[in-house]
Simulated assay, not measured.
Amino acid sequence: MLVRFARGFLVVTIVAVGLLPGRSNAASAPVASDDGATITAERWLDETTLDVTVSSPALGESVPVRILVPKGWTRTASRTWPVVYAFHGGRDTYVSWTRSTDIEQVAADYDVMVVMPDTGWAGWFTDWWNYGKGGAPKWETFHTGELPQLMERNYRAGTSRATMGISSAGYGAVKYAARHPGMFAYAASFSGVLHLTQLGVPAFALLQASERYDALRIWGDPLTNRKNWEANDPYVLASQLRGTALYIASGLTGLPGPNDHPAVGDDLIHPQEAICGSTSVSLVNRLKQLGIPATTHIYQNGWHNWSTWQPEMHRAWPLIMKAIGAQPRAATLRVQA
């Protein structure tokens, strides 16, 4: 077993993995993506939870991905499964959905796979501009090219897909749906940044990235490289969301909501939620102008954290399952019987 640190979390490369009942080791030569991305390690955490390591040419490094598989899943099945690609936000990791929500229990009620990849500390779901030179990291290429190909070629993920995310990942989910029409049947954003070029928002986005990176590498300067920013802005791309089912939720005030329980010393206002709420309203209004339907939940109070996002996931989940054809487990068992 090889141990190293990357991006602030522990990465364990498993050379030999013990088997769980009903689970087999990966094939000796996993099938690579078109550009050569490949699975280099996998580890079963339990019967339905698998962590894999992907060596990604798009990113120029290896990154982790967590996968939830439904009961009855096998690597050699003749069928495939609908899949939800769930993205984490900035300053977090690929374990956040299983750490901070009950997504494992929610997903277990349906015949569905969930794929939760690394998105970087502040990768912003973009193939970075890098001062016009391009090159790594290419987060969009990883998430919409390499990753789906690896999941479909090695883990029986199907092409009936949905995507969802929180905060900057809400931006990623909706942006990917707009930039790749038809790839996702459903896109859900919980407190997402959905109007990237809205007044004041570029400074907010750059500030987050600048904690670790030269933020201008991502989209360039918001004034002199405006076209690049607009090419990655869900608001500007809104017309390309026609045909994708949407769920957009956000608070407007950043004040504690019904699911928040402030403790002594807590910041009572999350200003980033107000910013995200403003951009979410902006996109919702644009969709209305274009006649593009969306399920929306724009509320007043609620923090920018998981106490607010988990209930939104619960509201969106049945809609997502219907859109991708993921049957409730009880129905699946009846059909199999």
Rank of each mutant, 00 (worst) to 15 (best):
M1F: 07
V3N: 12
V3D: 12
F5P: 02
A6K: 13
I14C: 11
L19R: 15
L19Q: 15
S24D: 13
S24K: 13
A32H: 09
G36V: 00
A37S: 15
T38I: 13
E42L: 08
D51V: 13
A58K: 09
L59I: 09
V63C: 04
V65Y: 02
V65S: 10
L68A: 02
V69T: 15
V69A: 06
P70F: 05
W73E: 01
T74Q: 11
W81L: 05
V83L: 11
Y85W: 09
H88A: 14
T98P: 05
R99V: 10
T101K: 07
T101L: 02
I103C: 00
E104I: 09
A107N: 07
T119M: 15
T119A: 14
W121R: 13
T126W: 06
T126Y: 03
W129H: 14
Y131Q: 12
A136S: 11
F142S: 01
H143N: 08
E146T: 08
Q149E: 15
E152C: 07
R156P: 03
A157C: 08
G158Y: 00
T159S: 12
R161I: 06
M164Q: 02
S167C: 07
S168C: 09
Y171G: 05
G172H: 03
A173G: 06
G182C: 09
F184Q: 00
F190A: 10
V193S: 04
T197K: 05
P202C: 07
A203Q: 14
A205D: 07
L206Q: 15
L207P: 00
S210P: 10
E211K: 12
W219N: 08
W219E: 01
G220E: 06
D221G: 09
K227T: 14
E230H: 02
E230N: 04
E230G: 00
E230A: 05
A231G: 10
A231S: 13
P234E: 06
V236M: 12
Q240M: 02
L241G: 01
G243T: 07
A245Y: 00
A249S: 12
T253I: 06
G254N: 02
P256Y: 01
P256Q: 03
G257W: 01
N259C: 00
A263I: 04
V264D: 10
V264G: 00
D267N: 14
I269Y: 00
P271V: 07
Q272A: 15
E273H: 07
C276S: 12
C276Y: 00
Q289A: 10
A294C: 04
A294H: 06
T295D: 14
H297M: 08
I298N: 02
N301C: 06
H304E: 06
N305T: 10
S307E: 10
W309D: 03
W317D: 03
P318D: 05
L319W: 02
M321N: 08
P328E: 05
P328S: 03
L333H: 06
R334A: 13
V335Q: 15
